[in-house]
Simulated scan of single mutants.
Amino acid sequence: MTWLEMLAVFAAGIAAGGINTVVGSGTLITFPVLLAIGLPPVTANVSNTVGLVPGSLSGAIGYRRELSGQWGRVLRYSSASLLGAAVGAVLLLTLPEDAFAAIVPVLIIVALVLVVVQPRLSAWVRQRQGESGDVPAHGGPILLAAIFGTGVYGGYFGAAQGVLLLALLGVFVHEDIQRLNAVKNVLALLTNGLSAVIFIAVAEVDWLVVALIAAGAIIGGQLGAKVGRRLPPTVLRAVIVVVGTVAVIRLVFG
Rank of each mutant, 00 (worst) to 15 (best):
V248Q: 04
A111S: 15
D176S: 03
I37F: 09
A11S: 14
G216P: 02
L83D: 00
V243G: 07
V113E: 13
V246H: 10
L67F: 12
V197K: 05
L112T: 05
S58G: 09
G24M: 03
A217G: 03
L39H: 14
L114N: 02
P232R: 07
T150E: 03
N181C: 03
A201W: 10
G88I: 01
L180P: 00
V74I: 15
L95W: 14
G154K: 07
A101R: 12
G13S: 15
V117F: 09
G193P: 02
L52D: 09
E175F: 06
P105T: 10
I37C: 13
G24N: 02
A167N: 10
V163R: 05
A80D: 13
R229L: 00
V241Y: 04
I109N: 06
I147N: 03
A137P: 06
A160W: 00
L144M: 14
V227M: 05
R120A: 02
N185D: 13
L82K: 02
A201F: 08
I177L: 15
A15W: 01
R120Y: 03
L164C: 01
G221W: 07
Q129T: 05
L165Y: 09
I108P: 06
N181V: 04
R126T: 09
I218D: 05
V113C: 14
R73F: 00
V202R: 13
A85H: 06
A167S: 13
I213D: 01
G221L: 08
F172K: 03
Q118C: 00
L121Y: 04
L187Y: 10
Y63R: 00
L144A: 14
I147M: 07
P105C: 08
S195C: 01
L35V: 13
G254W: 06
I200V: 11
N192D: 11
G170Y: 06
S81R: 04
H138K: 12
T43G: 13
V110K: 06
V246R: 09
T150S: 05
T30A: 11
T150C: 08
L114F: 06
L95C: 13
G162S: 02
S195W: 01
V135Y: 14
T27F: 09
A101I: 04
P141W: 07
P54I: 07
L164A: 03
L114K: 00
Y156A: 00
R250Y: 11
F10W: 15
A80K: 11
G13H: 10
I108R: 03
